[in-house]
């Protein structure tokens, strides 16, 4: 790993910390407020690619684990990882990796704009929603004892918000790709 990749990883982890400081937005038609930080996984994979995106999130989870209040709302510490939603936080690195893999596979330079949008959106949905829930929901079920099916149905209320996040992440990732492409230069 060269120094530039190391710096990109650290800067992206820092961006995710800052996204947690931005006040969450509430939308009338979705029951849960949207925090900018939860878009971080999709953004990391789509913007700096699979390997660096995953490492950025490993670094971020390390910050949480050593007791820095970097999660949105000033949360952090080992207690969050021990709690019921710890699986989602530990799953972020894997989710960012898968998002990056899909984005690297589907998005190339010189494609039509619309295909790049579709590629980023697919990557965000597969990595940032499907993979993340595939880790977080069984974890929550195992830790809290809530039956898996109930936990899975309960998580459905987050899906509309997550799709909206994927859409925002897609637009932002494509803007960065047009302005300062980093995805092709793989670590």
């Amino acid at each position: 790993m060269n120094t530039r990749d190391l710096v990109l990883i650290a800067l992206f982890a820092a961006i995710v910390v800052v996204l947690g400081l931005i006040p969450p937005i509430t939308l009338g038609f979705i029951p849960v407020p949207i925090t900018a930080q939860s878009m971080g996984v999709m953004l990391a994979g789509c913007i700096i690619g699979a390997k660096r995106g995953a490492l950025a999130f490993l670094l971020f989870v390390l910050l949480v684990a050593i007791g820095l209040p970097v999660l949105s709302g000033g949360r952090g510490g080992l207690a969050v990882l021990a709690g019921p939603s710890g699986g989602f936080i530990l799953g972020w690195a894997v989710a960012a990796f898968v998002t990056g893999l899909v984005a690297e596979r589907f998005v190339h330079e010189g494609q039509r704009e619309i295909r790049q949008f579709v590629g980023f959106f697919l990557a965000s949905v597969i990595g940032g929603i499907v993979v993340l829930y595939a880790i977080g929901v069984p974890w929550l079920s195992a830790v809290s004892g809530t039956p898996l099916l109930t936990a899975a149905t309960g998580s459905l209320i987050f899906i509309p918000g997550d799709l909206l996040k994927a859409a925002i992440a897609t637009l932002a990732a494509r803007a960065v790709y047009a302005g300062y492409p980093l995805l092709p230069a793989r670590a």
């Binding site: 060269n2 120094t3 530039r4 190391l6 710096v7 990109l8 800067l11 992206f12 820092a14 961006i15 800052v18 996204l19 931005i22 937005i25 949207i34 900018a36 878009m39 953004l43 913007i47 700096i48 925002i168 637009l171 932002a172 803007a175 960065v176 302005g179 300062y180 980093l182």
Partner: peptide, 24 residues
């Protein structure tokens, strides 16, 4: 968030080369 995240990320990551050069 949409109009903020794009510029924020580009402006931040553009510094990567300078910082990496400074570290090396």
């Amino acid at each position: 968030p949409l109009t903020i995240i794009g510029p924020l990320i580009i402006l931040t990551l553009k510094d990567a080369d300078t910082i990496a050069a400074a570290i090396d």
